[in-house]
Amino acid sequence: MEHKIRVLVAKPGLDGHDRGAKVLARAFMEAGMEVIYTGIRRTPEQIAEVARQEDVDVVALSCLSGAHNTLFPKVVDLLREKGMGDVLVVGGGVIPDEDVPFLKAHGIEEVFGPGTPLATSVEYIRTHVNREA
């Protein structure tokens, strides 16, 4: 059996807008990936711990409240602490372009803004996921 890509679609922060996260989860599923969805209002600690227990290859963070600069890097730090630095972390939501360099410098490898085609996100994950050695 081939290695199935496992993705954690996670919503850190307090906003309840999960339309994008759910649409993305469904697109990943239809692209043959296994998707674990956290539901809304999760803390970085919960997200990192679930990523560890579920042995995911990708953590896709979605936040529309504007708290991304605080929350996304926290998730990355916690993943590294747990020895999961090789997990691909991507982000999306209402994220101004000017915040993107900051997020990239803090381990969010790609940021998908509003209007990103689903196929683009799917393809990015397929080509950038770190296969375990």
Partner: peptide, 27 residues
């Protein structure tokens, strides 16, 4: 597609950080 949405976890967040509980979703 061979993919799956593993959704049980959503209802298990009460114990997500409990050190003695491990949860694994499987397709």
């Amino acid at each position: 597609s061979g993919g799956a949405i593993l959704g049980d976890r959503v209802r298990m967040f009460d114990v997500a950080l409990s050190p003695n509980v491990y949860i694994r979703s499987m397709g």
